[in-house]
């Protein structure tokens, strides 16, 4: 299986198994996700794609009953080996959730939140302003919110909230961005805007995006992973997968015969 190219890897897993209590959600996942590209994950509900995503920045562990075997390497380092600090993992691996979840503080403080967590030395106000503008520019939100940076982030529209949730990851320069159905709470226009934004970020970050929307996977990703019942069925160039799937199950799913 594996990727299609010899490009450097952002995420590499070996024999990754995951249990919620006694329920096994992932089976022997071996996945190589390339650097600097957008990889989408598709598959029917409950196939484990969100679970996989959430184990890459170890946010799964908020639930006390999760057990994992195997390894997950991010930029060549195993994030499950002993002595790994969750704080450092999560700095490198940013996460965008299904429902936009800006914190109930000002827009500016949202953008600076993770920067402040991970930078111990004081920055001048001018430097902070620069960081805020830069991050908001990158997510195409600056022109909309530049006059109301002190407003509560929760007062923005859902689309803007989701963009803000992406923007607040950028100041700490993560290597990987994980996105768990980032557009599913948005209307078609918002979806288009966020997709455009994700495409803008291509190259600067390695992006892994879970989606239910096959059209989205097809138009907005370089490689595509198809999962079923906790297993990876196929991983290949997005173009190839949608034109000539190698696997019968993939073909069935793509053509809408189930899922």
């Amino acid at each position: 299986m594996g990727g299609t190219s010899t490009r450097a890897l952002a995420i590499a897993t070996q024999k990754l198994n995951l249990w919620y209590g006694t329920f096994q959600a992932l089976f022997d996942i071996d996945l190589n996700i390339g650097q600097g590209i957008i990889t989408s994950m598709i598959g029917p509900s409950g196939c484990g794609k969100s679970t996989f995503l959430r184990s890459v920045n170890r946010i799964n562990e908020r639930l006390g009953y999760v057990r994992i075997t195997g390894s997950v390497d991010v930029m060549g380092e195993d994030i499950y080996q002993q002595g790994v600090e969750l704080v450092q993992v999560r700095k490198q691996v940013g996460m965008v959730f299904q429902r936009p979840n800006p914190l109930p503080i000002s827009i500016r403080d949202n953008v600076l939140f993770s920067h402040r967590l991970h930078t111990s030395d004081k920055c001048s106000k001018a430097r902070l302003d620069e960081i805020v503008e830069d991050a908001l520019q990158q997510v195409l939100l600056w022109d909309v919110v530049k006059d109301k940076l002190q407003h509560k982030a929760t007062s923005l529209s859902l689309e803007q909230q989701q963009k803000l949730c992406i923007a607040r990851l950028l100041p700490v320069k993560p290597a990987v961005l994980l996105m768990d159905e980032p557009c599913s709470a948005l209307d078609p226009k918002g979806t288009e805007a966020v997709e455009e934004l994700i495409w803008e970020l291509r190259g600067k970050y390695s992006i892994l995006i879970v989606t239910h929307n096959m059209a989205q996977a097809r138009r907005a990703s370089d490689e595509c992973v198809f999962m079923l019942m906790g297993k990876v069925i196929e991983h290949t160039d997005t173009g190839d997968m949608f034109v000539t799937p190698r696997n019968q199950e993939t073909a069935d799913y793509i053509e809408g015969r189930y899922g």
Partner: peptide, 11 residues
């Protein structure tokens, strides 16, 4: 989700 957001950012 606020807790999750903060923790996912490494708080």
């Amino acid at each position: 989700r606020y807790r999750e957001a903060a923790e996912a950012m490494g708080a």
